[in-house]
Design a protein around this nucleic acid. Structure first.
Lengths: 245, 245
DNA sequence: TTTTTATGTGTAAAAAATACACAACTTTGC
DNA sequence: GCAAAGTTGTGTATTTTTTACACATAAAAA
């Protein structure tokens, strides 16, 4: 075996000091914005807060924050959720990064949008300052920054995603009736679905546990209550392709 | 009508100087990395280049660059494509942002991954330095940074996306046979498909134009050539839900 | 001219999606 | 306490989509 080491032509130009290289890079402020969906009174809602910029006085904005040094984006998003809603262990997914140079009136800021789904009744909002509240999606008017666009894209993302995975359960109470489940799907997809076919579909997915309880305090014949079989879903995750309605 | 203006409680705390606010934000270097897929010899390939960091000597990396001041992410990605392949007007889509604090040996750098599809024969690589080349996907070994993970995620994204939209045409020559089209799908999805059902499916989508030409110089009975009906696809885009194989 | 290899096509069976109606149960109002 | 209103729960027939599968034909290669 030859001991001679060949040096590829480009090796002469290799950069030795990676730190110096990175320090010479321009850099931009980076934030995370969370589109947190909830479901209440058969309506899809988003958690919003009044902007604290005078420039956007009285406009609602998403819950967001600067990403800290050495913080992962996912971490930052979870931190925001925890701070504002007290919840950890919530569904959360990165959706898209927004970079328009003028999206922030104070200069360039890049933001990464995260989408989260949670059950409105499972938690108390941590702060009631700045009019933090659940706003119904269709009646959201203008928002601060490009937050309306972010919400729109997250909503599209959700509509698509919920047909591929049974995400909806994150928005419902632990125990729910099939009617509530259907109301949720109808609200998210903005369609009306055939009741019998809807039930048949979920029955065939075999992801619901019949807990042998009935609805209480409903002004009509009570329906059966179910739980979502998270365990079974986790096991069969790979096989999920689509849920068509 | 009263002229008195009520001031909401939080208005006292409104931030007037948005610029000062943003300037106080910490900031991070931001790059774009492109996962550029091509198709050649019935294999799915990715455009890669040797890393110019000594730390990653002889590792391949993706084509990427720093995002410039006031440059949109999409712009940056198109710029990289144009610089390296000479192509504009290519398919390009943002996939995901990667933020692990140690993903770059020189310190924190956030990168936004873009996925692009192009026809290998439609262009000449602009630079042959640093071993820029089309590398077959399955034989890609370790890569610099977290680029292997980025490629993996873009590949999953592509597999999913090609079943929802007929993206594959971006990877093929203008004129192609049904066999070539099927080879492409088989390569991307890593499955084998029934020839008759595949043809039937595409026939029913009605997106192929029979140009009444035959393959040339193939060592067997030549097949008919088709073009993709981009116009028709654009018109019916809204109606696309899925292409299942 | 024979062999090889790939093209091009149709049909039957199975599975999935859709459309649709009625009896049973509970609350509410009279 | 009875009728009305409103909702739950269930099954089947029809249509559409998906799947599996075989043979004649065309061109090139031997």
């Amino acid at each position: 075996m030859k001991k001679h080491v060949t040096v590829a032509p480009h090796e002469e130009h290799l950069i030795k000091d990676a730190k110096a290289l990175v320090q010479a890079y321009p850099s931009v402020p980076l934030t995370v914005d969370c589109v947190i969906f909830g479901f209440e009174e058969n309506k899809l809602k988003v958690l919003v807060i009044k902007s604290d910029l005078e420039y956007y006085k009285n406009h609602y904005s998403l819950l967001g924050d600067i990403v800290k040094d050495n913080e992962e984006l996912d971490e930052a998003a979870y931190r925001i959720l925890k701070e504002r809603t007290g919840m950890n262990d919530v569904f959360l997914d990165q959706v898209r990064t927004f970079s328009h140079p003028n999206r922030h009136p104070g200069g360039r800021v890049i933001t990464v949008a995260y989408c989260s789904l949670l059950n409105i009744n499972h938690h108390q909002l941590k702060i009631h300052d700045n009019d933090l509240n659940w706003h119904s999606l269709p009646t959201l008017g203008d928002m601060a920054f490009d937050h309306k666009e972010i919400v729109d894209q997250c909503y599209s993302w959700l509509q698509k995603r919920i047909q591929e995975h049974p995400l909806g359960f994150n928005l419902l109470p632990e125990k729910f009736s099939l009617r509530e489940l259907q109301n949720l799907y109808e609200a998210i997809l903005a369609v009306s679905l055939d009741r019998r076919n809807f039930r048949k579909k979920f029955a065939s997915m075999d992801l619901l546990i019949d807990i042998d309880e009935m609805e209480q305090d409903v002004p009509h014949r009570p329906g059966k209550l179910y739980k979502f079989n998270f365990e079974k879903y986790e096991k069969s995750k790979r096989k999920w392709i689509g849920i068509d309605f």
